[in-house]
């Protein structure tokens, strides 16, 4: 803090924002409250950060799932981060359109999720839609079976790989896991259970 800033009004005394880090970058760097290994930017939920007037920052945030309870914690965390960086007023708005898709998770986000033990969503959800099991006599579908790969003309999303050993032989145990955005699977090679970020 340069002493000369002290005379500059209500933000004096707060940590000064480095000119190289914009409010958008700071908001994007806030970790997800439920999956702290990825940032909000990597998760793709941060839509827009603007400064309609000096000191007033408007953040547009979109939820992964409609009922995602983390959205309130995200808003609080963003507000705190931006206030610490000198924003006088922070407004966080939730927007629903266009809807978030698991395709919005960045490459870096996918890599971090896998390293954290969560199988990242397969790409192509925005065009293909959710990956459903399809009618079958039991709820379990063998990895790489026809139901998961779709009709012959569509190569489908491919198998879900185990984040621990990399095997493609994995089985869905439950469509809904610890959060609405994840399913519970088990690896048939190393026998470890793991979470899979669902395609939506």
């Amino acid at each position: 803090m340069v002493t000369g800033h002290l005379a500059q009004g209500p933000t004096a005394g707060s940590r000064s924002r480095s000119p190289s880090r914009s409010f958008a970058e700071l908001a994007g760097a806030v970790p997800d409250p439920e999956l702290p290994v990825v940032t909000l930017a990597e998760l793709g939920v941060l839509r827009r950060v603007t400064e309609p007037e000096p000191g007033h920052v408007l953040v547009e945030l979109t939820p992964t799932y409609t009922g995602c309870p983390a959205i309130e914690a995200m808003s609080t965390d963003i507000e705190q981060a931006l206030r610490e960086a000198g924003a006088e007023r922070v407004e966080v708005r939730t927007v629903l359109t266009p809807p978030w898709s698991s395709d919005d998770i960045t490459e870096e986000g996918r890599r971090k999720l896998a390293a954290y033990g969560i199988a990242p969503p397969r790409e192509g959800a925005r065009t293909r839609g959710p990956v459903l099991v399809g009618l079958s006599p039991t709820h379990r579908v063998r990895a790489g079976s026809r139901e998961e790969q779709g009709p012959a003309s569509d190569p489908g999303p491919g198998p879900v790989h185990c984040p621990h050993c990399g095997s493609a032989e994995t089985t869905e145990l439950s469509r809904f896991s610890s959060t609405a955005c994840k399913a519970l699977r088990r690896c048939e090679s190393c026998r470890e259970p793991f979470d899979h970020f669902k395609e939506v």
Binding site: L96, W100, P130
Partner: peptide
Amino acid sequence: AKAVREVAYHRDHAEQW
């Protein structure tokens, strides 16, 4: 547009059961 993708999973779950 957002909810329809989630509801697809609800429907799938009910069908499986």
